[in-house]
Write a protein that binds this DNA or RNA. Structure first.
Lengths: 247, 247
DNA sequence: CGACCTGTTGAACTCCGTCAAGGCGTGTGG
DNA sequence: CCACACGCCTTGACGGAGTTCAACAGGTCG
């Protein structure tokens, strides 16, 4: 589960591709520690791309890796096609998140990045970013921290996949989603509007759609949440988690 | 599953802590692209530490994070204690591997690193390494690639955890272990001497020890391998994998 | 020799996957 | 406007892989 503390000032972007070197607020997942001058140097190598409409790809597995992408507005799912044709969803990302970093050192991206709603991203050409890092140690430091966090998140996902049952996986997913979207939208009413399908969530959690559906039904019957199509209301997570994560 | 292409010239280290600035071959997971002069700069900030005897910690969760460690000789398991007291093994690492990188940006290490046999490591003070990276872009590039590979490995572990059954997990583990140790020891006889316990392997694969034992027994009865305490002989992996990884 | 730890084997149970059917909302065409 | 199809989600019944609990074998160390 990708979790960042990054916030992003929401942008009122016009509906066409822009090439703005002036809007320094573009990338808020990196650059927070930089001076104004350094931020301008960063701004000079990046550009805003969008909108990507729902279902369209920001990059695909076959695309040569050249850039990282910071999500500005919208949401993105990362998925890889398995050899048998099934799709495996590897993550969901929101404004302030960086995607594509795990392709560093490879010639191609590792999977497809698909917009879940109208989405704008900020392109960071990797070679230029690297050169800038060499000039700005603070930027290098930020990138290293960001990659390390991605490793920690992936490690945590492995551990959770091993020792949590379906219901706990679902709840952990929902609360991290809510926490994040709470930061973003400042809504604290515990209602989550899902930008992705239940099928995508099931795939991400390593469950069959039927199992996810059953888990949600059971949680609803226990009064933990309310499950309505693409809207989920969290009622009483504390009660559920208090019986202590048994192994 | 950690896989690196790094090779390492095996060192005949004396059994006491050494402080060798001359042995440039110390760290072979990074520095491969550097000039002689740059390698010397790298050597000047690192030092060899060891031996750690079996069961002793190179670092623990409570240890403040200051350094990365490249394994020179021996083997290391990474494990975290869960709140209920159970231990979760998160990885096994061998000469040429780098550990501790996912603590970057945190004040403490994320888990314990325990030697599985007499082990020497090379300590890389992180702050100094960062400063060196700013001076040597090639080194910065290597570090970024190394971190990205760790992300890919962890992502692959998530996917494997989801759609492989116990037997396939075991075989995948064994062959990656064998591949790696083959590179190291130049033995190609497909006999693996396990430095870790079966319990550790089970934990790493997300299985109960009983399930691992059963999987190994079944594979032995099928003629795929021979299971003898801490020695496993791989016989015919090709046959097993040919029926196509069915989801 | 006996205590202990690790690994193995057996039997019963549980959770999730699988297969099948049906409900619901949406879009399309008549 | 309704009829229908289609995709997505839900529900039910069943089976199987892995867990759990228990007993035991084999090695090591006191």
């Amino acid at each position: 589960m990708p979790i960042t503390n990054c916030r992003m000032t929401s942008l009122r972007l016009v509906g066409k591709q822009t090439d703005c070197t002036d809007c320094v607020v573009q990338v808020r997942c990196i650059g927070n520690s930089l001076s104004k001058q350094e931020l301008q140097a960063l701004s000079s190598i990046i550009r805003t791309v969008g909108p990507f409409k729902e279902g369209s790809a920001i990059f695909k597995m076959e695309t040569p890796f050249n850039s990282l992408f910071a999500i500005q507005h919208g949401s993105v799912k990362i998925e890889a096609a398995l050899e048998d044709g099934a799709n495996l969803v590897k993550g969901f990302y929101f404004p302030g998140h960086l995607i594509g970093a795990d392709a560093i050192g490879e010639s191609l991206y590792q999977y497809d990045a698909i917009a879940l709603e109208p989405t704008w991203v900020c392109e960071l050409p990797f070679t230029k970013l690297e050169m800038l890092c060499a000039q700005i140690p603070k930027l290098q430091h930020e990138i290293l921290i960001l990659l390390a966090r991605k490793i920690r998140d992936a490690d945590a996902a492995v551990a959770n996949g091993h020792h949590l049952n379906a219901e706990k996986k679902v709840l952990l997913f929902l609360q991290s989603l809510n926490k994040y979207r709470g930061i973003l939208t400042k809504k604290d009413d515990d209602v989550i509007e899902l930008p992705m399908s239940k099928g995508d969530i099931a795939s991400y959690l390593g469950l069959r759609p039927e199992s996810l559906s059953r888990a949600l039904s059971k949680l609803q019957s226990e009064g933990v949440l309310i499950n309505q199509a693409r809207k989920i209301t969290l009622l009483d997570l504390g009660r559920f988690f208090k019986p202590a994560l048994k192994r």
